[in-house]
C-alpha cells in the first residue's frame, strides 16, 4: 500500500472510536456468533447428519456476513453453490457410505486432545497477530456497494477472463475425473462379485438391479 493510501487510512480511521459500535458491527457480531457456534457444533457433534445440517447454518451465516460487507454477488453464490449443492453432495455421501443415523461413538479420533491443542494454539496466535495488525483499520461501508453483480461482473470479464476460462477447464476435468473414479470402481466390483467372464447382458442386468 502506498504512503498516500496509508495516510487516507489513518484519516478515515480518525473519526472512529474504539468502543462505538455501529449497527452494522452489532449485526455482524451477532451473526458471527451464530456462525461460529454452528461451526463448533459441526466439528463436535456425534451425529453425522446433524453435522451436515449445522454446516448449512454456518454457510448461511457466512452468506449474511457477505451481505453485511456489501458483497451481494458473493453472498448469493455462497447460497447457491455451498448451501444448495455442496451440502446436498455431502448428505448424499453420508447416505451412500451407510453412515449411522443415530449417535456414533467413534466419530472423533483418539488424538482429539492434541487436535484441540493445535487448534487453540493456532487460534490464539492468529487472533493476536490479526488484532495487533488491524487494530486501527476501519472498512468504509458507505456509498455504492462494492460487490454488486454489475461491479463484480464487469471486473470479472474485464480483468479476470483468462483465469475464468481456465476455471471452466478445471471444472470439466473435475467432472471427467469424478466419472472415471466411480466407473472404474464399479467395473472392478462387478468383475469381482460375478467371478465369471462378464456377459454384457447379465452385467447390465446387475447394474439395473443395483
Amino acid at each position: 500500500m502506498s504512503p498516500a493510501a496509508a495516510l487516507a487510512t489513518t484519516a478515515a480511521a480518525a473519526p472512529h472510536g474504539f468502543l462505538s459500535p455501529t449497527g452494522v458491527e452489532i449485526a455482524f457480531l451477532l451473526v458471527g456468533l451464530v456462525t461460529f457456534g454452528a461451526a463448533l457444533v459441526t466439528v463436535t457433534t456425534r451425529q453425522l447428519v446433524h453435522a451436515a445440517l449445522w454446516l448449512v447454518v454456518t454457510l448461511g451465516g457466512l452468506a449474511v456476513e457477505y451481505l453485511l460487507l456489501t458483497a451481494e454477488f458473493i453472498a448469493w453464490m455462497q447460497v447457491l453453490i455451498y448451501v444448495g449443492s455442496v451440502v446436498v453432495l455431502l448428505l448424499f455421501g453420508l447416505m451412500l457410505t451407510k453412515a449411522p443415523i443415530g449417535r456414533s461413538p467413534d466419530a472423533d479420533s483418539a488424538n482429539r486432545w492434541a487436535a484441540l491443542g493445535v487448534a487453540v494454539a493456532a487460534a490464539a496466535a492468529l487472533v493476536w497477530v490479526v488484532v495487533d495488525a488491524f487494530r486501527t483499520t476501519w472498512i468504509d461501508l458507505g456509498g455504492a456497494p462494492s460487490g454488486s453483480t454489475k461491479v463484480t461482473g464487469a471486473s470479472l470479464f474485464q480483468n479476470w477472463v483468462l483465469p475464468f476460462e481456465a476455471l471452466s477447464v478445471l471444472l470439466l476435468a473435475a467432472l471427467v475425473g469424478a466419472i472415471v473414479l466411480s466407473r472404474k470402481a464399479k467395473a472392478d466390483a462387478a468383475a469381482a462379485t460375478t467371478g465369471t467372464p462378464a456377459v454384457p447382458g447379465s452385467r447390465s442386468e446387475k447394474e439395473g438391479v443395483r
Binding site: H16, T22, V24, E25, F28, L29, G32, T35, F36, A39, L40, T42, V43, T58, L62, E65, L68, L69, D106, A107, D108, S109, N111, R112, A114, A115, L116, V118, A119, V120, A122, A123, L126, V127, V130, V131, F134, R135, T137, W138, I139, L141
Partner: peptide
C-alpha cells in the same frame, strides 16, 4: 466497520476447521 471483526471471525472459523480436520475420523 472495524476490520478486526471479519478477520477474527475468519481466524476462529479456520481454527475450528483445523480442529475438525485433525480430530474427525
Amino acid at each position: 466497520m472495524h476490520l478486526v471483526y471479519p478477520a477474527v471471525l475468519a481466524v476462529l472459523l479456520f481454527s475450528t476447521g483445523l480442529y475438525g480436520v485433525l480430530a474427525r475420523r
